[in-house]
Write a protein that binds this DNA or RNA. Structure first.
Lengths: 103, 103
DNA sequence: TTGCCACATTCCCAGATGGGCACATATCAG
DNA sequence: CTGATATGTGCCCATCTGGGAATGTGGCAA
């Protein structure tokens, strides 16, 4: 088997640097594609492709405004990541600091 | 260019399901390879390979005990992920709930 | 030394990119 | 309709990958 598709889940989607960059930008507010193109310095087609991946995994949503497409971050898509991280770190903490037994 | 190496950073490393599984197991405490092999149901070589990737990105550490190698989670390696996630979510919240101005 | 055990490494290969580039589409101004 | 603007898609290709199977290696027991 080869590597999983980038659209397999949020973990694979955010593995790509540029996509994280795009998500970070969208975290500060919605933006049309060309805005992202300028901010990232990437070619427009590349940005569109990254956005497509982010769309497929539910990390962003689009809204059409005239001939533009305004992208918006959908934080719910990051939930699995947050949760996995929390579980791992939480359990680790529980093991590392059993001081005074658990409550 | 192709996809970044799985050993490029923690984001790429945890993109793989099996590796997340291994990290979750290690979150509950150190374990020798064979333990992980049993828990994951993967073949030993595969587990070793995943562990190698996790080692390279600093997500786990090894300790030799006799002929075994005990792996331990190194949470500091997850910091970049935690931080990126926090920044994105925090900024998003700031935009979504500007109630009563910022403090 | 011999043999076994716990792991790591190497080789092979189909599958999935990400960027560059050309091109298709949709919308809006004239 | 025509041209310009804003995006999405298709194609090509070097590169990295995860699993399977075989092999290499260090430590321990007899």
């Amino acid at each position: 088997m080869a590597r999983a598709a980038t659209t397999a889940d949020p973990f694979n989607a955010i593995a790509e640097r540029r996509r994280r960059e795009i998500l970070a930008l969208l975290g500060r507010g919605e933006r049309p594609v060309n805005d992202l193109v300028r901010s990232t310095g990437l070619a427009q087609p590349q940005v569109s492709k990254h956005l497509r991946v982010l769309r497929r995994v539910g990390l962003v949503r689009v809204r059409r405004v005239g001939r533009q497409r305004v992208y918006r971050l959908d934080t719910s898509g990051l939930r699995p990541v947050r949760e996995w991280l929390d579980v791992v770190l939480r359990e680790w903490q529980a093991k590392r600091r059993p001081r005074g037994r658990a409550l």
